[in-house]
């Protein structure tokens, strides 16, 4: 490490933002793509977990528990190293990230969806059925829309967590904000300036999301 004695290099700090912004595009793309994939898969898993068949329920629950109770960094490496060895398919680092994070996030979302649906008292479903609705109709017209507002705050929190967790893709060389920040640091030796710029980049993107999630929690979160 190069020793430096004098203070903060504002130029180096300022010029970090342009490359970091390119990384931000990757961070946002990762977040959005993973979320788009995870919502339908999460709904599917939630329905499997509410299934009438014990075996289906047990398998779905086990799958979800494993993804929820293991470190996402480990999941990333597992998909990176082990999946090719098991299946012979080698994915690009970007696809590795998509697969691992989708597994992770869809498991968390399925729990959110399941809990949201379960929180609507069964009499609401019975009331819908007694009006001659089919089970699917009572879910779409009555249970789903009510569960949605219970689900929204937790969904927003999962979104924010995903946004931050994507920083881990830098460990498998996907060029997101953190990867570019670490590269830049190695190239310029402006450690303090570059890393502070990188943290500010995340703050600028993450803070509004976190505040929005807080607001949703206050507005729609279940009290007591």
């Amino acid at each position: 490490m190069i020793a430096r004695t004098v203070g903060f290099e504002w130029d180096a700090f300022g010029s970090s933002f342009a490359p970091l912004l390119e990384g931000a595009v990757m961070t946002v793309v990762l977040t959005v793509v993973v979320m788009l994939l995870s919502v339908p898969i999460g709904v599917g898993l939630a329905l499997l977990r509410l299934s009438r068949h014990k075996v289906v329920r047990a398998i779905a629950t086990g799958w979800v528990e494993v993804w929820r109770a293991t470190p996402v960094l480990l999941q990333l490496f597992w998909v990176f190293y082990v999946l090719p060895a098991l299946t012979g398919i080698t994915l690009s680092p970007f696809l590795v990230a998509i697969v691992a994070f989708t597994g992770h996030v869809s498991a968390f979302l399925s729990e959110t969806f399941r809990a949201g649906i379960a929180s609507i008292r069964p009499q609401q479903r019975q009331a819908a059925l007694s009006l001659g609705m089919t089970p699917a109709q009572s879910f779409i017209v009555v249970v789903g829309p009510q569960a949605w507002w219970r689900i929204l705050p937790a969904f927003a929190n999962t979104w924010v967590s995903l946004f931050k967790d994507t920083a881990l893709v830098s460990t498998i060389a996907v060029a997101d904000i953190s990867y570019i920040g670490l590269q830049l640091r190695q190239e310029t030796f402006m450690t303090l300036e570059v890393l502070t710029a990188m943290a500010l980049m995340y703050l600028a993107l993450g803070y509004p999301q976190a505040k929005l999630a807080d607001w949703l929690e206050r507005r729609f979160g279940v009290k007591e």
């Binding site: 009499q123 019975q126 009331a127 819908a128 009510q146």
Partner: peptide
């Protein structure tokens, strides 16, 4: 037709 003890109107 069915009428429930706790009404079970759809709150939304």
């Amino acid at each position: 037709g069915m009428v429930f003890q706790n009404f079970e109107l759809f709150p939304h």
